Simulated assay, not measured.
Amino acid sequence: MNTPLRQPNEGTGLFGEQYSRRNCPQATRDGEPMGRWIALDESGWDGDQLHGEDRSRYLTIGSVAMSDEDAADLIDGLRRTTRIQAPELKFGTSFAKDGQSQRRKALAALLGPGGALEGRASVYVLDKHYFIVGKLIDLFVEELTYKQGLDIRNTGVARKMARDLFTEGPRALGPALFNRLLVATVAFASYKNRDQQVSVDDFYDVVEEAWARSSRRNVTSLLGLLRTTRAEAREYLDDAFGPNASLLAALEPLIPGVAAVTGNWSRRVGRVNILTDDQRTLTDQHLDDIADDARGLGHPEFRYISRDVSLGELLRGKSSHHPSLQLADLVAGAGFAVAKRHAGHLTPAGEDLYPVIVPLIDPAGMLSHDDPSRVAQAGASALAG
């Protein structure tokens, strides 16, 4: 018996039922009443494993407000200027290497003042360590306070808690113990713990030690509240990994990142259509969830996300078929090089591009501060953010 060849879903390189619906095989075109097409791609993604010596500190999502129809001319022009022969433009292979400074100058000219992408490109920067701290509050403390009738999410209290713990935690606990708290959070809450080898007691042993050793009042108070959330942690395990699991990819940063970029662009330009690269974590269900939240159809707690957001299509595509996604890849890759520079990993690409990339950083990104210009600092420590 012959086994049928497995075919990817139309318009992507992905296989399976999870990628059967939200695909875009045709070139995108802007026009009323459709709205503006926004193409986006990521760099630095490594799933929900957010901490470790071999992990990049930042995730960047590059986006361009440009359809395939318009992007094709830019890609052709950039190809002629740089004499790149590869069938597809990728930042990592064609712009990131030491001997490619002239190509980076051409890219900078597109992104900088007077360039064809001026006002049409954005870099969303997500600090994975800050994201972990935010999830520590979101998954446990916020669940506890919600049961008590308190809304710490929409009032900004949860955000302040996360920022206080992130900025003061390393001093209050010492860098080593603070990092252990981040590692314990990832080990407990990530998909790798679906077999629940890391127990509630294992996780709270680290929380208890952090609380006992804290030397700053704000951090001690917050950790004291976290100590009372064991019931919420048990509920989390049931919701995430139990027989009736409903909590999908809670520690996956790309999904809320795409949602945030969608909302930020819509609040800026009006109705948008989103084309994402065919990243495996962006299943039909996850894209459905993002679209529901953007349209105010998600869980009532999250409907604030849909404020002033108008979303048309939310689709995925293969970058080789969509020149707008190739531009988004270049923006994401350049943003990642600059983010690595901020984390202390200096490269020629980061040095060449940070002057044009830093002004493109979304001020509503997932950073522990509201000043994207700080990303221009090279070799910033965790405490500097």
Rank of each mutant, 00 (worst) to 15 (best):
V186E: 07
A245N: 08
A65E: 11
T167V: 12
A349F: 01
A86P: 05
H322I: 07
P87G: 05
R80Q: 13
A364C: 03
M34Y: 11
S320G: 08
L237I: 03
V183L: 12
K90L: 12
K90R: 14
A376W: 03
N154H: 07
G92F: 03
P300N: 08
A250S: 15
D46Q: 14
I305D: 05
D371I: 12
R341E: 00
D54N: 15
E143Y: 06
E42R: 02
N264A: 11
P323E: 03
L346G: 02
G16C: 09
G333R: 00
E235K: 10
S20P: 03
S56E: 11
L353S: 04
N244C: 02
L353I: 07
L181G: 05
R268L: 09
F302D: 11
Q197F: 04
R234E: 15
S373I: 10
E301C: 08
R271H: 04
R213D: 00
R21A: 13
A245F: 11
E118T: 06
V375C: 12
V133L: 09
M161G: 02
E17V: 04
R234A: 15
P8M: 07
D308M: 03
D46M: 14
S373H: 14
L383Q: 10
E235R: 14
D370V: 00
Y19W: 14
D284L: 09
K340E: 14
A121L: 00
G365Y: 01
L225F: 01
G47R: 11
P33F: 14
G335H: 07
I357D: 01
A27I: 09
A343C: 09
Y124S: 02
S122W: 06
L107F: 04
A233R: 00
Q85M: 13
Q326H: 10
S319E: 02
D151K: 06
S368L: 05
L14V: 06
V309A: 07
I152V: 10
E232N: 09
R80N: 10
A116I: 04
A212G: 03
Y146T: 08
Y304S: 13
R230F: 08
V207P: 02
Q85A: 15
R79M: 07
S266K: 04
D292A: 15
G13A: 13
A187M: 03
K147R: 15
D278R: 04
F15A: 08
G52W: 00
